[in-house]
Every structure is written in structure tokens, then in C-alpha cells.
């Protein structure tokens, strides 16, 4: 009752020098992932002559594109200190849905409903948006923690996928999706362009719009956001829908990119997307980070996955190495948060 205020009294000069230290500390979250990226790139460039080539940079960009599209929406969610575990399943079911509404070759044994391309895309988008709305409803209206709500949605979306394809594989998607997913323009794959545009859009929304500010404020201090008269539930609900729609777009392009639509096709994208966002330095506790961080995280992950294929090590060991590097990045994330919290005191 008396002790806490006495610390706030001392004079300004101590605060001045502390402020510089605090600034450096607070930037830890952005500096650390960037250093990781430079270190990994340098390492693989030295270890393998085939790594640092124009062609391979193109490979890495293409390889991270689907993850990047999904990670845009996930960044919004994690900035709000929530989580979405249903991203990969929603990507999968949306990709399957767009193929389901497209006329397949006669040998594909799926009882599908062929529609015009635009209708198929629209229905697929509506599907992922509705699944996102269900997540939003569970989280905000019913009050189920996002971890559990989206865990259930993960299963639900996988279930819808299973019912649509029934163990079969579909190949055809609407022309627009096929182009965006697998064609190139002037040597640059469309999917890279789409990913870049979506990341840019995400960045603009988060940085320059009122909604973006609200996302950061809700993540930074949810109670204060509520007592400032923000509609916290509306904001949380919106980010869940944004996440689902980004996942859906990633899923449609992914299906075109891979050339097929089938069950469990996107399973690895759940961890990859979460890892990209968090490794990049966006705080799991909300309020800190952004699309810039996610981009760095995507490249850390892309360089790591790609680079390990270029060096000659036991392919079974690679999985472990990947895990250890991700763990190191997460430790830095939590540690940076603590440094910053101390700096703010």
C-alpha cells in the first residue's frame, strides 16, 4: 500500500540512460529473428554452393507462398493473443470444396457438383468464411477459449473434407485458381505475387487502419481496450474470420499448386504457419509484432527447410534440427517479451 509509489520518484537522468537500454531491449523482438535469418542464410551459402543462387531464391519464395498466405490471417489472431489451430484444416476443406464444385475428369470417382468457375470460387470462399464465423461465435458469444474452439473446428473442417472427397483425389480447379496457383508471369510465379500482395494488404490494414490499431490495443491489454469502449468481441470475431478466409485462399491456391485436392494435404501447414508468425517475433501474448515479423519468420522457415535439403546430412536428423532451431527461436520470443516488460516498469 505504501511501497510501490516510492520507486517512481527518482530524478530524470537515471531514466534517460535507462531509456536507451530499454529501447534496445524493446527492439530485441525484431532484431533477433533478423539475425537468425542472416545467420542461417550465411551458413547455408557457405555449406552448399547450390543454395545461394537466383533459382534457389525463387524456389524458397514459391515454397513459402502458401504458408505466407495462411500466416497473414494468423498474424491478426496471434496479435490479439488468441490462436487458430484450424487454419490448415480450413485451407484443406476450402481447396477441396473449390475442386468439388468443378467438373472433374471422368475417372475421378467423386459425386461432385460442377458449377461455373466463379461460382465454385465464391462458394469455397463462403464456406471458409462461415467456418471462421463459427470460430468467432464460439470464442466471443459462447466464450470457448480459442485454443479449444479451433481444435474442434480443425476436426470439423477435416470431417467436411472427408465427406466431400471420400478418400478420392480431385485434380481440376477453376481456371483462375489454376493460373494463380501454378502459372507464372514474366518468370514470377503468380502464387508468389498473390502471397506478396496479401502480406502487403495485411501490413497496410494492421499499420494504417483504425481496425489494425484496435487489433494491437486488444492484444496489448484486453481489459483496457474494453474500458476504452472498444467492442472487443467484434474485433476478436473479425480476426477469426480474417484468419479463416486467408486460410481458405491459401488452400485453394495450394490445391492448384500441388495439382490435386485430397484429405490431409495441408497438415504440415498448421505448425509451419504458427512457427512463421512466432519465429518472426510476434508475441504469443499479443500486442507486439506484425506482418514484417511474419515475413522474416517465413524466410527463416523457408531458408531452413530449403537449406537443409542442400546440405548433406542424415535426412532423419533434419527433422530434429528443425525442431531445435524452432525451439531456440521461441525461447528468444518469450525472453524478448520479458525484457520488454522489464523495460516498461
Amino acid at each position: 500500500m505504501v511501497s510501490s509509489d516510492s520507486a517512481a520518484v527518482p530524478a530524470g537522468d537515471r531514466k534517460g540512460s535507462r531509456r536507451i537500454a530499454a529501447l534496445l531491449r524493446s527492439q530485441m523482438r525484431n532484431i533477433a529473428p533478423f539475425l537468425t535469418l542472416i545467420f542461417l542464410s550465411a551458413f547455408f551459402a557457405i555449406a552448399s554452393p547450390s543454395f545461394a543462387t537466383i533459382d534457389n531464391v525463387g524456389n524458397i519464395l514459391t515454397q513459402v507462398s502458401v504458408t505466407g498466405i495462411i500466416a497473414v490471417g494468423l498474424t491478426f489472431v496471434i496479435l490479439c493473443a488468441e490462436i487458430d489451430l484450424s487454419i490448415a484444416s480450413i485451407a484443406n476443406v476450402t481447396g477441396i470444396a473449390v475442386a468439388y464444385f468443378t467438373l472433374q475428369e471422368s475417372y475421378v470417382n467423386i459425386a461432385n457438383i460442377p458449377l461455373p468457375g466463379w461460382a465454385a470460387i465464391l462458394l469455397a470462399l463462403v464456406l471458409c468464411a462461415v467456418l471462421g464465423l463459427v470460430n468467432a461465435f464460439g470464442l466471443t458469444v459462447i466464450g470457448i477459449p480459442s485454443f479449444i474452439m479451433t481444435l474442434a473446428m480443425m476436426q470439423i473442417a477435416a470431417g467436411i473434407s472427408a465427406l466431400l472427397v471420400r478418400g478420392q483425389i480431385a485434380y481440376k480447379v477453376p481456371d483462375l485458381i489454376a493460373t494463380l496457383g501454378s502459372a507464372s508471369i514474366g518468370g514470377i510465379p503468380w502464387i508468389v505475387i498473390v502471397a506478396a500482395l496479401m502480406l502487403l494488404a495485411g501490413h497496410l490494414v494492421l499499420t494504417y487502419t483504425r481496425f489494425g490499431r484496435y487489433v494491437y490495443m486488444v492484444g496489448g491489454n484486453r481489459e483496457a481496450a474494453e474500458y476504452s469502449g472498444l467492442n472487443v468481441k467484434l474485433i476478436l470475431g473479425s480476426v477469426m474470420v480474417i484468419s479463416a478466409v486467408c486460410s481458405g485462399i491459401g488452400g485453394m491456391l495450394g490445391v492448384a499448386h500441388f495439382g490435386s485436392a485430397q484429405q490431409n494435404e495441408f497438415d504440415t501447414y498448421l505448425l509451419d504457419s504458427i512457427a512463421a508468425v512466432v519465429v518472426g517475433g510476434t508475441s504469443l501474448f499479443g500486442g507486439r509484432g506484425g506482418i514484417g515479423n511474419t515475413i522474416v519468420g517465413l524466410f527463416v522457415l523457408g531458408v531452413l527447410n530449403n537449406g537443409l535439403d542442400h546440405v548433406n546430412i542424415d535426412s532423419f536428423l533434419k527433422i530434429l534440427i528443425r525442431g531445435l532451431i524452432l525451439l531456440a527461436a521461441l525461447v528468444i520470443n518469450v525472453y524478448a517479451q520479458r525484457l520488454r516488460a522489464k523495460a516498461a516498469d
Partner: peptide
């Protein structure tokens, strides 16, 4: 609380931590 704010009500709670964004 957004409804209340739109109706012209402002609120300052007893704890500053619950009101402000320290970072």
C-alpha cells in the same frame, strides 16, 4: 462497453492498469 461509449458514457476504472496501455 462500446454501446455505453456510443451513448455518451465515459469510464475511468479504479485501477490504471485496467485502463491504459503501458507499452
Amino acid at each position: 462497453t462500446a454501446d455505453a461509449r456510443r451513448a455518451g458514457i465515459a469510464f475511468v476504472p479504479e485501477s490504471r492498469r485496467a485502463m491504459l496501455f503501458h507499452q
